[in-house]
Amino acid sequence: MDFIQITIFAPTAFNDILTAELSQYGYDTFMETDEGLCAYITEDIFSETDLQEVLNKYREAAGEIKYTIEKIEKKNWNEEWEKNFEPLLIADICSVRASFHPKPEGVAYDIVINPKMSFGTGHHETTTLMIENQLTVDHAGKRVLDMGCGTGILAILACKLGGTEILAVDIEDWTVENARENADFNDCAAIEVRLGDAAVIEQEQPFNIILANINRNVLLVDLPVYNRILAAGGTLIMSGFYTEDLDQIKEKAASVGLNFTSNRIKNNWVSVVFEKE
């Protein structure tokens, strides 16, 4: 999907009003620059008539309001960061690196990730914590689900830890494509990558391990679904939220019948482990 950038030249006093108005028409993000207020919308829902309707309201008060329209093609904007992506060693046994880094010696699990625009290189606390928790769980011969898979890093580790059937799911199309590339790069034929949200897993056979590094709001909504498709004796590992959200997550998990096992914390981020009887 390509994007449309509208640059609006109006007195800065009107920036907040125009932001509030345009946010009702599908403009999700705005940037204030020296030239003017830039508003962003996906190409499929852009309407110049809507834009003019909003601007016309304030022409009397603000004077002349000019604008320019520019199309921005989607590309890998993360390329610059990727070039400088430092390889990592987690828990002394799991390395995460890009394909241009040399293969490390003496690590049990070597994961290669070319992240492009997806989340999950192990540099974020939540990914590190998830990996640390995963390393304590026996994956051999297990069916594993990775919800919100991003680069597929956790699914790839699940495969290297011996998981035999792994389903990785994400709601972003570019991420799904990226997770497939990374799974291939790591020779993980056991991984199936699927586009969608919790709705696409509801009919699945039970999983022994479910991994979900997303965010508090999504986890709270999807916990009952995870519980339904978690096998008896199965493990659920989640992250993507802060310590202050842990009680709410634990309460919700308890309400669906999951038992809290442990949690890890790093820079206020948490990863928590639950088990099903």
Partner: peptide, 20 residues
Amino acid sequence: SPPIGPALGSKGLNIMEFCK
């Protein structure tokens, strides 16, 4: 997506870390 991707990415920042 724009502007976050291009604005942060062009300066070599980890875009996904900001989003998370």
